[in-house]
Design a protein around this nucleic acid. Structure first.
Length: 474
RNA sequence: GUCCCCAUCGUCUAGUGGUUAGGACACCGGCCUUUCAAGCCGGCGACACGGGUUCGAGUCCCGUUGGGGAUACCA
């Protein structure tokens, strides 16, 4: 193991965000690729929103995606003492100072500055007042240099930075004595010896201030890599309102974690013309150099395509285990592992992009109460289908074997008997009769899986439906 | 307002001065076919604009436009 260390530092807000998941994936991948250490740290300083439960949800999402961490989870709240120490050290070294400006005053002065064409940063009123600990209610501000560049060489964006004058003396400790985010991350990243800070580009503008903090703390800079944001179909930052952003939602929709990981890794990263990447391959091939700089739009069709790809590739046992909960959701009862169900799943693989779709396509085999598709019934269970259904029923009744070849022969015989009908003329009415809808796997496979008893019962039912229509037409 | 960032097919992207600008998804058409898929074959489709630099710019520079992000005693 090298001394390369990356970290993922989510705030536990109740779900794992799509963008966060990609950030986690890239951090994981970079660590794996270089034999480094992937650290997990929970930024739980916002006590209002942070609960142990929502933390568990985030961890759960990571595990489900297959992103295993080597260290942690550390929690930022457990490190309050260290943050306090760092701030005290800065105060002692005169690299930070106490500020007694009230929020209201600050607000007014900021607006005045903006109105006057200024950047709206802190005016430095308390900077040289040398306020001591007994100055009353106060915050602590970092003494940011008056000039010079706070710059770095971003692993994704290249040379980056901002003029120190644009930053202003930022607050690093609140009036209640708690540290602010920018101070806490830097202290934590230093203490945890994080060598690569890989995070969303929304943090890009925070970086100059954080660099000022690193310098004040006399700590070496890590390598920063900012990831272009993932935007929604609107082209704007993903929002919980508009977009599907929770990993848990994708899971509930029946997406495979393999597909999601593959989809995410390609949102901003590429490896030549390759499209399919397993997690293992990502851990071998990932490179920050190949991360793009423009925001990527998260559009579902490609995820669907990947989903189908991975469903097709899943070993039979694995497929059954994974789809089982969804099947039970459709059936509303426990599902037995039997031969015919397994056979059905094999047929459904290439027709399903998610496990939910697959379970839905298996409905006719799971439930005895068919949901009839109105249009299909109207089109195929019409009076003309009556002789077909009746002839097929008696042919199938007498079948010695309920097997593919025998069913096919029976159909051929009936087709010939009824005047050389095309197979489609037989298959569609039967399909609607036994599945309720116009689509299913091959008709003989479908019949074989359903079994003789259920098939005959459903054809009976269909005959009743047709007869009812004949009568009402009179 | 100020600062920062981005810009190749509808979407994800390849491309690092000389390419018929490549791939994937989506879309369209064909083949296969008992339906739906899958599979195979084919098609549509892009360098935002304007200036430079250069023998030669998608590639380098500047500007314009467009888009995004940040401007908290949130993280």
């Amino acid at each position: 193991m090298t001394d390369l260390r990356t970290r993922f530092a989510p705030s536990p807000t109740g779900f794992l965000h799509l963008g966060s998941a990609r950030t986690a994936l890239y951090n994981w991948a970079h660590a794996r690729r270089h034999g480094g250490c992937f650290v997990l740290r929970i930024e739980d300083t916002d006590l209002e929103r942070s609960t142990r439960e929502s933390e568990e949800t985030v961890l759960d999402g990571l595990r489900w995606l297959g992103l295993d961490w080597d260290e942690g989870p550390h929690r930022q709240t457990e490190r309050r003492e260290r943050h306090r120490e760092a701030i005290d050290g800065l105060l002692d070294a005169d690299r930070a100072y106490r500020c007694t400006c009230s929020r209201e005053e600050l607000e007014v002065r900021k607006e005045e500055d903006i109105a006057a064409g200024g950047p709206g940063t802190y005016d430095g009123r308390c900077r040289d007042l040398n306020l001591g600990p007994d100055c009353g209610a106060h915050t602590v501000r970092l003494r940011v240099p008056d000039e010079g560049l706070l710059g770095w060489d971003d692993a994704v964006f290249g040379p980056s930075g901002q003029d120190a004058r644009q930053i202003g003396d930022a607050i690093i400790q609140r009036g209640d004595g708690t540290p602010l985010y920018n101070l806490a991350v830097v202290v934590d990243d230093i203490d945890m010896a994080i060598s690569h800070v890989i995070r969303g580009a929304d943090h890009h503008p925070n970086t100059p201030l954080q660099i000022a903090i690193y310098r004040a703390l006399e700590a070496p800079l890590p390598i920063f890599a900012h990831l272009p944001l993932i935007v929604g179909e609107s082209g704007k930052k993903l929002s919980k309102r508009r977009d599907n952003v929770s990993i848990q939602d994708f899971r509930a929709d029946g997406h495979l974690p393999e597909a999601l990981v593959n989809w995410l890794v390609r949102l901003g990263w590429s490896h030549g013309d390759d499209e399919i990447f397993s997690l293992t391959e990502i851990g071998e091939l990932f490179s920050l150099e190949n991360v793009g700089r423009s925001p990527a739009r998260a559009e579902p069709p490609k995820l669907a395509w990947l989903g189908q790809h991975y469903i097709k590739a899943l070993p039979s046992d694995e497929l059954f285990t994974r789809v089982r909960p969804y099947l039970e959701g459709v059936k509303g009862a426990a599902v037995e592992d039997d031969k015919s169900l397994r056979a059905l799943l094999e047929l459904l693989r290439e027709r399903s992009r998610t496990l939910v779709e697959m379970a839905e396509l298996a409905r006719w085999n799971l439930c005895e109460d068919l949901e009839y598709d109105e249009k299909a019934v109207k089109k195929h269970l019409r009076p003309a289908a009556l002789p077909v259904l009746q002839a097929l029923q008696s042919a199938m009744e007498g079948l010695p074997e309920w097997a593919l070849v025998d069913l096919e022969k029976a159909f051929e015989a009936v087709a010939a008997e009824l005047g050389d009908l095309k197979l489609g003329k037989l298959a569609q009415p039967v399909r609607v009769a036994i599945t309720g809808g116009p689509n299913s796997p091959g008709i003989f496979e479908t019949l074989e899986i359903l079994g003789r008893e259920r098939t005959l019962a459903r054809i009976d039912k269909a005959i009743e439906i047709v007869e009812a229509r004949v009568e009402s037409a009179d």
